[in-house]
Nucleic acid binder design. Sequence first.
DNA 1: CGAAGAGTAGTTTTT
DNA 2: CTACTCTTCG
Length: 714
Amino acid sequence: MPGMTVAADLNAGQREAVLYLDGPCLVLAGAGSGKTRVITQKMAYLLRECGYQARHVVALTFTNKAAREMSERVRALVDPKLLRGLTAGTFHSLGLRFLREEHAHAGLKRGFSILDATDAQALIQELLATTDRARLRAVQQTISLWKNALLDPDAAAQVAQGPDALEAVRIYRSYQASLRAYQSLDFDDLIRLPAQLLAADEALRARWQARVQYLLIDEYQDTNACQYQLVRLLCGDRAMFTAVGDDDQAIYAWRGATTANLVQLGRDYPALRVIKLEQNYRSVQHILQAANQVIGHNPRAFDKRLWSDLGAGEPIVVMPMDSDLLEAESIAMRLSAARFERQAQWKDFAVLYRGNHQARVVEQALRTLRIPYTVSGGQSFFDKAEIRDVLAWLRLIANEDEDPAFIRAATTPRRGIGQGTLQALGVQAARQGASLFSVASTVTEAILPAARQRQAVQDFVHLIAHFRARASRRAGAPLPLPRVPVQADLLSSDPDAPDGCRLPASGAAPIDGQGIDDAARVLDDLLAAMNYEHHLHDTLDERQAQSRWGNVLELIEWLKRKAGEDDMTLLELVQHVALVTLLERADDAEPDAVKLSTLHASKGLEYPHVYLIGVEEGLLPHRGAEDDGPPEAVVTAQARRIEEERRLMYVGITRAQRTLRISWCRKRRRGREDIACEPSRFIAEMGLPAQAPAVSGESDPDRTLGRLKALLRR
DNA sequence: CGAAGAGTAGTTTTT
DNA sequence: CTACTCTTCG
């Protein structure tokens, strides 16, 4: 019986969190205390027993993967019929959905684009006219932080101090102007803009508040000012929401997130009910003890003490290593041995580290021993050059004003359009205040004297126009339907848009079915017209060309599947792709492989056996730049950074269910030379009893090396 | 215009 | 050590 299963096997705190519906609710859920369970059970409770319709329930997460997991778990609990129209997605995807429907309010055309971090960086680089990588990153980050703090360029100018900050303001201004000209948004805009529009427009707010009747927010400690505003505006005075978070796991301050939002929630909603979950169902006591010890060194707004009844477990092992190379080799061997000894599977093991680059050495060692592994948090599938090449074409088709896409698509593969041509087009575009594409489509002899260049440009424009016509037949062109209040809904994949902006039921049907086939055909023809496979074989050796072409085909297959599944148009698809990371496709096959992951990417996951590597001063905690920021703020800023690093350590420790091995290196190769390292202060903070001498010789470098070499010879 | 070569800089975490 | 950028040559 439905009524029996909800909350049946929950502990007291979890049950209270699920059943509490009298007002706003904050669940402080320690690591491994079942927070996802609370959220999914609460969704089930709302839908099955409280009469909430799915389209009125919105659940927000920070990653696509978390959103997917949430949907899956709810699907297992609730009759699919009751789930139609449910929103379970990231903040960014909700923002995108909002803007798709309300684009007119934002002064955007329907086919606006989204620039990912790489595109945005390229744009800023152009505006900054520098090759200084560090400066570039600094400016991009500064602008992003301003945006997330809801500061426009004028407001930023008020707070900016020093020449660097003033220059950043200048860049911010022209960056925004460029985005507007390209009819493009960056990631931050996807949240900032909806928040701004909702704050400014009462009717809009009322409409969305009627739509969002219950809001659930996961990882609440990672919200920034912007996201908090959005939450407040969506909830309104009714304040029906549940926020779940853990201030000890806040590791995104560098992205503008602030745990102050946890405290602020109590001030903004005095009726807030706070529920703590302190029983851990994940880890043995040795591990929890160490975690509690470490995090105890941080000042905390909410004191929690995790406990578990899973038994003491094995002690944590701390291993000094002579170098990062030996560390990797030792772990590879240790993994082989442990898998055998414990009769475990590869996927029961994870190697966690602070920075992506640390994965390289480990990968090498695992490959040598033929240990299967997967890396998460590294370069995204969508960051690969070949993928970006193809997507540039799609983006240009969706939004011809997006100059970055124009530049990339026009020049790859090579089709006679080079620097000179682009520059001439660019000069003219700047003069007219028009996009490159619009200049290109009306190109004259005055702009491009050489007939060959003109021809190349015209050919390209025709190609794009051809595909645009085909792709937008369903996407944008008026259908023979009665006008509907909000046109964007023709594009919506949500069959249960709120009343008032929904298609007449009779109107939605005709485009079904047909769309699948068309999107697929357009994609195939586009790929052929690009001549991309030929281009790959031309510029690369056979091996690389094969592998890249494989990636392209995978992308195309994925797009086709997506177009079919969600009945999306090509244009929607292209927008959607900008938000999807490699996490989304990691589920295709869950192979039996060791997991390599950054600490950040490991949040929310758990493994029976965890290796936490590179636990050294300078790496974890990572050495921060002591010389930036106003002097008087440095001391506190520095302390905050250490606290965040400590939470990162805490997150790492609490990923482990049964065993945890921590290692640090006496020296580490960095660039061209070795640098000496010391163990992280966090190791001492764990308060472990003196270590027994290491077993089976893996701390003895000579023996380790000898064994490895013996293995390699075979 | 584009491809091949030499030189140079780079390492935090991500939606 | 590698990946990318800038330069030079065809």
